[in-house]
Design a protein around this nucleic acid. Structure first.
Length: 510
RNA sequence: GGUCCCGUCGUCUAGUGGCCUAGGACGCCGCCCUCUCAAGGCGGUAACGCCGGUUCAAAUCCGGUCGGGACUGCCA
């Protein structure tokens, strides 16, 4: 097997979503695991949809996931440019030659006419594809259409009979009848080029020899294959490359082989899209999913190693991934499973690593300055072991420890109503006194609460919950004794006293 | 409608004729532990779409059937 040259070629409209990321990952793993190259190409042939912002987002998300590219935007490479919007001259040269060779023809129907034809075919229950109406136009007819002001598109003449079979790396041999494949457009009336053309030209020109992509493109493959043979016949592509100053195709280049990946679907079994909420990689980043976990999970969306192993480092994935273990049925993107894996990974982080990864999220929430003060960093580090067991995403840490980074406590009404009542005033009063001179460490503080509970003849919970609410504002927090020990004694005692005082003045409205 | 793809617990999957009274993980339920929330421990729930056939033996092979999906664009 020659060293794989693979590519990831998103259309830059919208954010990189997890489906696209999975496609990128499988290609990347294949390249990295087999000494190949990963090419990143921007397919912005549809000017109406492509945006620079989207392209920057794609770059950022790929970087976040750690999927580095050998050729492409920002890193360059020998087969550039890597944005299709900058390769229009090449495509035009190619289509001119194809037209000359008679492989494609000009068709003059307007978009409206084609829509009407489709609707009619639909009504009559005929296949809705282009029926080839302008296949055999005479020069006079062409002239007439042009005089009407019509601009033609260029369509590829597909074979009328026979079939095409290709060996898909995940599905095995797949066969299509040519009769079911309509003549398709490669050059628009405005002179720009469609996905089929640009994609086929660039894959060949850049020496791409393996393509992993979504199953939604499976039925586009015959058209791709047709284009490869047309492009390679009589040196059409090679001449166009040379004529326009593009580097020649790599010497050992061959038309690519394909692997069609099972679709990623949402809870409703529909293909993943914005309607499923957060499907953008960047959104998962914001929620505090770790990139290595996202990579691990994405790898598992359609691939498995064996019956039991499901946690992999990126290096292990590079070593073990192969297309022969990619499944064929659609995979549901299960965020519950993702959360679980993320929680598992967080538990493996050292205190320092966790604190460091948490920091941006606290900054984002306005709890830390940027950069954080040494005191705040130390406090965060202290919380790391307490947080580790109780968060599944980094962002979940924020509400759990916000109280420690604010001067004022924000009281949760429900927690107050539930715990600052009955004997809570007495508990707070005695606790404030006891905390004022206990040794300031978790064990000693816990012992103090036990003693207090025994003294008052109440359960430990009754003794601690009011204090938890007084200090943190809520009834859910990291373990209380250790938490208190991380804060200043003065702060703790102050909060307990003031909660107690307000309770005494106005029960129910602390 | 046509073409193509797919069909194992709720979910992702293991399974390539006997190791399968179908394994793992997530989820869910119960119990234990417990200062809240978690985490952890233990236990449990739950699947080969259906019908035929081949075979001593089928989740695995064959045929059919049903169901789901993708594509059928001057989007990619």
């Amino acid at each position: 097997m020659p060293a794989p040259r693979v590519r990831f070629c998103p259309a830059p409209s919208g954010w990189l979503h997890v489906g696209g990321a999975r496609t990128a990952l499988y290609n990347w793993l294949h390249a990295r695991g087999n000494g190949g190259a990963f090419v990143f190409r921007i397919e912005d042939t549809d000017a109406a949809r492509a945006t620079d912002e989207s392209m920057r987002g794609m770059v950022a998300s790929l970087r976040f996931l750690g999927l580095d590219w050998d050729e492409g935007p920002e890193v360059g490479g020998p087969h550039g440019p890597y944005r299709q919007s900058e390769r229009g001259d090449l495509y035009a040269a190619v289509t001119a030659k194809l037209l000359q060779a008679g492989a494609v023809y000009d068709a003059y129907e307007t978009a409206e006419e084609l829509a009407a034809q489709r609707a009619e075919a639909e009504r009559e229950r005929r296949p809705p594809g282009y029926a080839g109406g302008h296949r055999g136009l005479t020069d006079e007819q062409r002239e007439a259409f042009r005089r009407e002001g019509r601009r033609p598109v260029l369509r590829v003449r597909t074979p009328d009979e026979g079939s095409v079979t290709f060996d898909d790396a995940v599905r095995g041999p797949v066969t299509f009848e040519w009769s079911s494949i309509a003549d398709f457009v490669i050059e628009r009336a405005d002179g720009t080029h469609t996905y089929f053309l640009a994609n086929a030209v660039d894959d060949l020109a850049m020496g791409i020899n393996f393509i992993a992509r979504g199953e939604d493109l499976l039925s586009a493959t015959p058209r791709q294959l047709l284009l490869y043979t047309l492009l390679l016949r009589d040196g059409v592509l090679d001449d166009a490359l040379a004529d326009n100053g593009y580097p020649a195709r790599p010497a050992d280049a061959v038309p690519p082989a394909f692997a069609h990946l099972p679709l990623l679907v949402g809870e409703d079994r529909k293909p993943l899209s914005k309607r499923h909420g957060s499907v953008a990689v960047d959104e998962f980043r914001r929620q505090g999913f770790l990139p290595e976990v996202l990579v691990n999970f994405l790898a598992l969306c359609g691939w498995s190693y064996d019956a039991t192993t499901e946690r992999f480092t990126v290096d292990e994935l590079v070593e073990r991934f192969s297309f022969d273990r990619v499944g064929r049925n659609p995979a549901l993107f299960d965020t519950a499973k993702l959360r679980s894996l993320n929680g598992d990974r967080i538990k493996e982080l050292t205190d320092a690593e966790l604190a460091e990864r948490l920091q941006p999220y606290l900054v984002e929430a306005g709890l830390l300055s940027n950069p954080a003060t040494p005191a705040d960093q130390a406090l965060l580090l202290g919380f790391a072991p307490l947080l580790r067991e109780r968060i599944q995403t980094l962002a979940e840490a924020v509400p759990l420890i916000a109280f420690a980074f604010r001067d004022e406590v924000t009281y949760d009404d429900r927690a107050v109503a539930k715990h600052l009542k009955d004997r809570a005033g007495e508990v707070l009063d005695r606790a404030a006194g006891a905390l004022a001179d206990v040794a300031w460490d978790g064990d000693a503080i816990l012992a103090t609460f036990r003693a207090l509970a025994a003294e008052l003849g109440v359960g430990l919970g009754k003794a601690m919950q009011p204090v938890r609410v007084a200090v943190t504002g809520t009834d859910v927090s990291p373990p209380l004794p250790e938490t208190l020990a991380l804060l200043d004694r003065a702060t703790v005692v102050g909060r307990v006293r003031s909660a107690g005082a307000r309770l005494a003045q106005a029960p129910d409205t602390v």
